[in-house]
């Protein structure tokens, strides 16, 4: 069976660190960074990239439209 792998790219300059994507991810992929962007906000990143399926839940709930979602069948 083909496996689906996903990945996201966060626009870290646009992200405000609201944490909603982290709680919306069904596969526990995302976390908030310890570093901050130039506005002083933390931003989300993939802590467990192998779990990502590209379901785009994070992108759908992002209030600032800063998540790009990629998906690949391997």
């Amino acid at each position: 069976m083909a496996k689906i792998k996903g990945a996201i790219v966060v626009d870290t300059a646009r992200c405000k660190g609201c944490d909603i994507c982290v709680t919306s991810c069904p596969f526990d992929v995302l976390r908030m960074s310890r570093e901050v962007n130039e506005k002083g906000y933390t931003y989300s990143y993939m802590l467990n990239p192998d779990n990502c399926t590209g379901c785009a839940s994070c992108g759908l709930v992002c209030p600032d439209g800063c998540i790009k979602v990629y998906k690949l069948k391997v």
Binding site: K16, G17, A56, V69, Y70
Partner: peptide, 25 residues
Amino acid sequence: IIQPENLVYDKSAVLTDNVMHYCPG
């Protein structure tokens, strides 16, 4: 995985690149 042909979700082009003034979340 992160290649243009694999892109499945991105913000709409109708939404401008301006960072919104709204509070986080």
